[in-house]
Simulated assay, not measured.
Amino acid sequence: MSVVVVNLSASDDYFRFFGLNQKFNIDLPDLDQAYLAIQKEVHPDRYARGSDVEQRIAMQMATLANTAHQTLKNPIQRGLYLCKLHGVDAKLETNTAMPAAFLMKQMEWRESLDEQAENISALEVLMAEVEESKEDILTEIVQAIDGAKNYERAAELLRGLLFIDKFAVELDDTIAALI
């Protein structure tokens, strides 16, 4: 029995690995279906009686499939990955520069969270605003990547989305603590 190598040459491009077009706005059910098909092919149990080499390759392919799936399933990670594929490093650790209007909105949200920490209905209104802002940025990211192929702009938007996402988690935790 030899390992069915899904497409090792595509291992440097997660989209090609799953047979998907390289774009931000992917069809998640297609991603999941491709992932499950690959996992079924390379599942280590299928190679339990295979040679050490076959077992190792199956394990490597299963690990690659997991990593690729997690990266492409998450919109922020998918966007950062696309930027990286096109030579743009988002510099998340060092580049925290944001437009003034964006920073002002972040400060407003933070103040609202602090002031309304016990008011669940006010926090739910704030969550709706944060979610709407996330959707607006995701729409802009689709345009930047899939439309304009402007990966520098996409990296800026993704950095902002990371801020919003982190705040949304904190807000969600605050709401959950009140329920």
Rank of each mutant, 00 (worst) to 15 (best):
T67D: 00
Y81L: 11
M104P: 00
D146M: 10
P99W: 07
D89H: 04
A117D: 14
T63K: 02
G147P: 05
H86R: 04
K84N: 07
N66M: 11
V125M: 13
E129R: 05
T96H: 04
Y151S: 10
Q77K: 15
K91R: 10
R153S: 14
I76P: 13
K105L: 09
L92K: 09
I145N: 11
V88E: 03
V142K: 15
T96E: 02
Q55N: 06
T96Y: 06
G79S: 14
L85I: 08
L80P: 10
L64E: 12
E93Q: 11
L92S: 13
D136Y: 09
R110K: 12
Q106L: 07
A154N: 13
V88F: 04
L103R: 03
P99F: 06
I145G: 13
W109I: 01
A68N: 02
A90F: 04
L113W: 01
A62R: 03
L138Y: 12
E54L: 01
R78S: 02
I137H: 10
D52M: 02
E54V: 13
W109P: 02
D114M: 08
Q70G: 08
D52Y: 02
I120P: 03
I137W: 01
G79I: 10
V53I: 14
R56K: 12
K105E: 10
K134D: 08
S51W: 01
A117M: 11
V53L: 12
L72Q: 00
L85V: 04
A90I: 09
R56N: 10
T63P: 03
T63Y: 00
D52V: 12
I57E: 15
E93R: 11
T63C: 00
Q77V: 07
A148S: 09
L138W: 13
R56E: 07
V142T: 15
L82R: 04
M59C: 01
A58G: 05
E115Q: 15
R153L: 14
M61K: 05
Q143L: 14
E111C: 05
V53E: 03
F102T: 09
N95Q: 09
A101V: 03
N119A: 10
A62I: 00
N74I: 08
Q55Y: 07
K73Q: 10
A154M: 14
R153V: 14
W109S: 01
D89A: 13
C83I: 13
K105H: 06
N95S: 08
Q77E: 10
P75F: 07
P99T: 03
S112N: 15
M107R: 06
T71E: 04
Y81G: 12
L92M: 08
N74H: 03
V142L: 15
T63V: 05
M61F: 03
G50C: 05
K73D: 04
L113V: 04
E111G: 11
E108V: 05
L82M: 08
E108W: 09
D89S: 09
L80I: 14
A97Q: 07
R56V: 05
M59T: 12
Y81W: 02
A101I: 01
T63Q: 07
S112H: 12
A65V: 01
A100Q: 10
D136C: 02
L103E: 06
R110S: 08
Q60H: 08
